[in-house]
């Protein structure tokens, strides 16, 4: 082993520990290793008890989000060489309860995702039979919502959001962005159905526009933009309601 590096990893075992500890491991330094490679090396060669989630190793399954020196990152997409020779501190994503070691609990997100109704909702009489083919959608219409459809649910945005950490009732960046993804889809009629939650206190108005959700997003989804744009359209809704109450939709 020529050059090595140190990883300081957050350890917590619910069956044994009341408080987490940090454990330091020495791993080989390889130019083309990502942090996940080093963690896999630890699991395989040094300490089989380390628990974490991972799968695709290509930044698309969204499993391996971790705090790397305090910043939320996909551990399969950051290289050791960017930190060498300093020690790297690895922790589970902040803002979530820790199940064990680097594994955090994401039940809360799964509930919120369901509540936001992230699927096409169409007016009943406007459903097109399959035999009549696809709904037409121009490339321009597709471009309107496409960025928001790129979310891999990796939870980095929640970990970057101090609002969520302070008050977990906040629906949060990814779920709202996914709601907006459908709101902006030309095939969808579900905005009103989603609005109740999106425009609620736990929804967009909780956001103070720190903007870090977008900064850490590995897929350029820009959830901060999704939320601010929802604020604008909700405000317009409100003005419309107040100024022309008779114009209210059925």
């Amino acid at each position: 082993m020529a050059e090595t590096m140190k990883l300081e990893i957050f350890r917590y075992h619910p069956e044994k520990d009341n408080e987490p500890t940090f454990q330091t491991y020495e791993v080989p330094f390889l130019e083309d290793w990502v942090i996940l490679d080093a963690i896999n090396y630890i699991k395989d060669e040094i300490d089989g008890t380390l628990s974490y989630r991972w799968s695709c190793q290509m930044g698309v399954c969204g499993s391996c989000g971790m705090m790397i020196n305090g910043v939320p990152k996909l551990s399969c997409a950051v290289f050791l060489k960017d930190y060498y020779p300093d020690k790297i501190r690895v922790e589970p994503l902040t803002g979530f309860p820790v199940e064990r070691d680097l594994i955090f609990q994401m039940d809360d997100f799964m509930t919120k995702l369901t509540e936001i109704q992230p699927y096409i909702i169409r007016n009943k009489d406007e459903e097109k039979p399959l035999d009549e083919g696809e709904y037409l959608q121009t490339p321009a219409e597709l471009a309107r919502f496409k960025p928001y459809s790129m979310c891999i649910n990796c939870m980095l945005c929640y970990a970057a959001c101090p609002v969520y950490a302070l008050d977990s009732t906040f629906i949060g960046p990814a779920a709202i962005a996914l709601g907006q993804r459908y709101n902006m889809d030309s095939r969808d009629h579900g905005r009103d159905a989603r609005q109740e939650l999106i425009a609620s206190h736990e929804g967009i108005w909780e956001c103070t526009f720190v903007g870090e959700c977008s900064a850490v997003c590995p897929k350029d989804v820009d959830p901060a933009a999704a939320i601010q744009r929802a604020k604008v359209s909700s405000t317009i809704d409100w003005f419309k309601d107040v100024l022309i109450p008779w114009g209210k939709k059925k």
């Binding site: 695709c56 399954c61 969204g62 799964m110 649910n153």
Partner: peptide, 9 residues
Amino acid sequence: VYPMRSHTV
């Protein structure tokens, strides 16, 4: 795994 982690992804 959570379904959206499945390798279809």
